[in-house]
């Protein structure tokens, strides 16, 4: 324990935890989007994010300013996500869950290798659109980058929420997630809704990647740990609950940061195992997570 407990220090840990948590939340939401529609956890989500983040880096390396590169990357990510669903998942969508999981693992391996093959294994610096300075709010120094990260991630989450809530397409996508058979009867092209879900998930992943990269640096393996936190957040919130994923992500970001800062045993190295232990504990007590629906299994 630090000798004296300082509120400003504590608040700083919380805010930086929220920034990290917003990144976990984005990726967790991506996982939930795919889980809701395809009923499978996409193990390649992190590698898809890494790959697109490298694309953004390439644009900027060629001289494109940050935000155009950002937007262009999101477009590519969207197309990529749709493509992955159409080409890889669609042909096997009626096979057992384990087969689809293995497909995403195949994609994980291939994308991870491809990223390293194209851009090399060296760690690269990635620009942040936000200055590396801090503002003082109520005696607490908060990093501008943290605020920016938080706002971008949460802003996208809110946009997505508005989309699902108020547009026809969003409604149809929700309908497909809940009841694909009935959606077909309504004239919905279910296959395309699934592909759109993968597209949005890829966009969320790309944002998480681009927001994480300035802090954790760009390398082919950079999203693996983030993916684990996102998994934990999604499971914590309930793997079928978008709200749960966001709350779970933020909660996890803050808790992990505080544990790392204030519990000596945990320190820097054991954050991940601690997150894992917390996750297992939650699952044992509440298998459906904090916001999850109870699953009724068919015989």
């Amino acid at each position: 324990m630090p000798l004296a407990f300082a509120w400003s220090d504590f608040a700083q840990q919380v805010t930086s935890g929220l920034a990290a948590g917003a990144i976990y939340a984005s990726l967790a939401l991506a996982l939930v989007l795919i889980y809701q529609t395809t009923n499978v956890v996409n193990f390649a989500q992190g590698e898809m994010a890494t790959f697109t983040t490298f694309i953004a880096w390439m644009f900027m390396d060629r001289g494109l300013p940050y935000w155009p590169a950002f937007a262009l990357t999101l477009l590519i990510a969207f197309a990529g996500g749709v493509g992955v669903e159409r080409v890889l998942i669609r042909p096997i969508e009626h096979r057992p869950e384990i087969v689809i999981v293995i497909m995403t693992i195949g994609l994980l391996i291939a994308l991870n290798g491809l990223t390293g093959w194209i851009w090399g294994p060296e760690v690269k610096a990635f620009d942040s659109p936000f200055p590396n300075s801090s503002v003082i709010v109520g005696g607490v120094a908060i990093s501008v980058r943290d605020i920016g990260t938080f706002c971008v991630c949460l802003g996208v989450v809110v946009l997505l929420w508005l989309f699902f809530r108020f547009t026809t397409l969003g409604l149809a996508m929700r309908a497909v997630a809940f009841n694909p058979d009935a959606s077909r009867l309504m004239g919905v092209r279910v296959g395309w809704m699934l592909a759109l879900g993968w597209g949005f998930a890829a966009v969320l992943g790309a944002i998480a990647g681009m927001m994480a990269a300035p802090t954790i640096f760009l390398d082919p393996d950079m999203m693996i740990v983030v993916l684990i936190y996102a998994f934990a957040a999604a499971v914590l919130g309930g793997i079928d609950s978008p709200v749960g994923a966001v709350v779970g992500g933020l909660l996890l970001g803050v808790v992990i940061n505080l544990l790392g800062a204030y519990v000596n045993f945990v320190g820097n190295e054991l954050r991940l195992p601690t997150a894992l232990a917390v996750l297992l504990l939650v699952l044992v007590i509440r298998p459906t997570g904090l916001f999850g629906r109870r699953v009724v299994r068919r015989v």
Binding site: I102, G106, L108, I109, A110, N112, G113, L114, G116
Partner: peptide, 16 residues
Amino acid sequence: KQAAPVVFGVVLMLIV
């Protein structure tokens, strides 16, 4: 060196 995982992943996907 990264060719190995690419081939591995592609082989796995083809098998599936």
